[in-house]
């Protein structure tokens, strides 16, 4: 293939898909009978709503980002520490995994009111709930990484008289990085969604503290559908940003050496 055409296609194809989706969107909108067109506001109406509601949406996005970030960061730190513990022995894993599973298996809307009892409605609860949802894939993947170290390498370290801590931080932790980042990518997808759902279930609009979930409830109750769609768009962008940042960090940490990235020989 022409070396010029590849990056070009990489831009062109997604743009073409986008254009197609827009066309389809308009087509469906105008295909609906006039009294039902509110079901799918056209893209320009959504854009207009986005512009008109920009101050509210921006503040909501900021609040949600804050909850998502705190929860996500907490999940990274706690899951890392817990993974170190879980990697110690199968016994530790057997005794803790079921309860971690229980946390993950409790649906957020049920967890939310419990959280509110403990932490009150607002940022603290939103952060905690985001933490609860982002944390499981991180623990599972990081632990798996920590216990999957190449036996030959472990033996080599033993032969060189490495202590437990050296083995952990020079060998096991770096070897677990690809797994950690797999978990991180899932968590980065879950965290913004989690923060929005948490906002709907345990958020508070006091002191302009409402997030995108709150905003969505308001717009839907007022039947402001273009604004509701605009809120959805902002939520998507937030998710994309989270993912993009994580992808970038993963790239920085892994692209030199990990086989999931193309080899770039200078």
């Amino acid at each position: 293939m022409n070396p010029m055409s590849r990056p070009f296609l990489k831009l062109l194809l997604p743009a073409a898909t986008g254009a197609l989706v827009l066309a389809l969107w308009y087509a469906i909108h105008f295909f609906l009978s006039e009294d039902r067109r509110f079901l799918l506001p056209p893209p320009d109406a959504v854009l207009a709503a986005l512009r008109d509601n920009a101050p509210f949406l921006a503040r909501a996005a900021l609040n949600t980002s804050q909850g998502a970030l705190i929860g996500f960061g907490l999940a990274v730190v706690v899951s890392f520490a817990l993974s170190l513990l879980l990697s110690l022995s199968p016994l530790v894993r057997a005794s803790l995994y079921p309860y971690l599973m229980a946390l993950q298996l409790t649906p957020l809307p049920i967890l939310a009111p419990i959280c509110v009892i403990w932490a009150g409605a607002g940022l603290a609860s939103v952060s905690l709930l985001t933490f609860a949802i982002a944390f499981f894939p991180l623990v599972v993947n990081t632990t798996q990484g920590l216990i999957s170290t190449d036996r030959n390498l472990v033996e080599l370290f033993r032969l060189y008289g490495a202590g437990q801590w050296q083995q952990l931080f020079i060998l096991r932790v770096p070897a677990a990085l690809p797994y950690f980042f797999t978990g991180l990518r899932i968590a980065a997808t879950l965290a913004p969604i989690g923060a929005v759902v948490a906002d709907m279930n345990a958020g508070s609009s006091a002191g302009d503290g409402g997030g995108l979930g709150f905003q969505a409830i308001i717009y839907s109750s007022q039947a402001r559908y273009p604004a509701l769609f605009a809120t959805a768009a902002v939520t998507c962008v937030l998710g994309f940003v989270f993912n993009a940042v994580v992808l970038a960090v993963a790239w920085l940490a892994l692209h030199h050496w990990h086989d999931s990235y193309e080899r770039t020989d200078k």
Binding site: D150, N152, L153, L156, L159, L171, P174, A175, L177, H256, W257, H258
Partner: peptide
């Protein structure tokens, strides 16, 4: 010890 696989740390 040197064994069949080079057992290098791929990230270093």
């Amino acid at each position: 010890f040197v064994c069949l696989e080079p057992t290098l740390l791929p990230w270093l």
